[in-house]
Design a protein around this nucleic acid. Structure first.
Lengths: 196, 196
DNA sequence: GACCAAGCGGAGCCCGGCTCCGATTGAGTC
DNA sequence: GACTCAATCGGAGCCGGGCTCCGCTTGGTC
């Protein structure tokens, strides 16, 4: 209520140098560990890799999901940016949607176990879910709308549902040579096309 | 090698009455707890509900997955049996496949969290995965083959892949009102149909 | 009624996420 | 350069969940 830090000229003290250094170290360490052991790697391992304590990790990233989000933020961003570009350059909106979904699926599949953790109920990963989907749902909706407008598909799935479905399909693609998530995803997108 | 229990007249001593009673109690308790709290309910809860100790549960069912398999065995069985029946009575093989997949999806969706645990890597649930899929893959393959033979679809997905894909799509259908797994599943099956 | 292996129960181990709090240290101040 | 203190650090420890271990109990048989 009474004033507080929001007050006039309230210059927030700059973060200490070691804090900045540690955050960088943590992001690098996490990225390395995720590649080596998958996204479900224990937090302790990441702390060890970065050479910091547990407390440090949890001050910078209140939850494991926040760390994951931070590590993949710019990749999500570039995926989001690719949407409009594909729409502009693609032959048809449905083709653009297919390519964009491929991009998304590639991203999920190449990060071991990321997809499995994208569900809203996945033991504390609501934050991850929300963060990723908030950014991507509008992009997907734009592509979907364009495809509907062009008459190529009938919209039986919302953008949210489509992304969740694709996310689900990508779960466990690694660890199981008999299952190819990308093929399933392509089939799903094909099913979107107007049948008659 | 040398004879062993398979030998002539090797009568195995019958299980004690209390053991049979406890197994029954455990199955009933597990079914109840799974309905109330989902398949991921703690083993301790099931033991408590059944009024037995942890040791008892783990002697009857060496792993949580074994308990889950036992609880749902007969439902899987009847799903498997429905396959040929649908094929015989359905208008076309693809329609029969669609109905059968609906049955399977219904089964997964109504058991809270079952789908999430069907993956081969899901922390010790390989047994569940194997048990369910062993029974259902041949049935699915039969339906798929018939649909391919009739020219309705081109087989771009193996029976195993299709079942995994459907299983994945069903993950987290409860807990998220914005996501309807059945719709996604129907779309996937539609995508199976020959496009041109 | 005595015997004993099958069966039981639950304390306790391990693992993984997360918290708590005393020790440490960067960076303004004099 | 010494001082101060809040920001930061580190890791012991809590909690919950799967699973194990082993001494106690008991059904069934002679």
């Amino acid at each position: 209520m009474s004033g507080g830090d929001g007050g006039a000229g309230g210059q927030v003290r700059a973060r200490r140098a070691d804090a900045r250094r540690n955050e960088k170290a943590l992001l690098d360490a996490a990225a390395a560990v995720f590649v080596a052991s998958g996204v479900e790697a224990p937090v302790r391992d990441i702390a060890a890799e970065a050479g910091v304590g547990m407390g440090t990790i949890y001050r910078h990233f209140p939850t494991r999901a926040d760390l994951v989000v931070a590590v993949y933020r710019h990749q999500i961003e570039s995926c989001a940016e690719a949407g409009p570009a594909l729409l502009a350059s693609g032959p048809t909106p449905h083709a653009a949607l297919g390519r964009w979904i491929d991009l998304f699926a590639d991203f999920l599949v190449t990060k071991h176990g990321l997809a499995a953790v994208l569900r809203p109920d996945s033991a504390g990963f609501e934050a991850l879910h929300a963060s990723f989907l908030d950014r991507l749902v509008p992009v997907c909706a734009e592509l979907l709308d364009a495809a509907v407008a062009s008459g190529e598909i009938r919209e039986r799935l919302s953008a949210y549902e489509l992304l969740r479905a694709v996310g689900n399909l990508c779960i466990g693609d690694d660890q199981d040579p008999r299952y190819d998530a990308r093929r399933a995803v392509r089939l799903l997108v094909a099913g979107l096309a107007r049948p008659e």
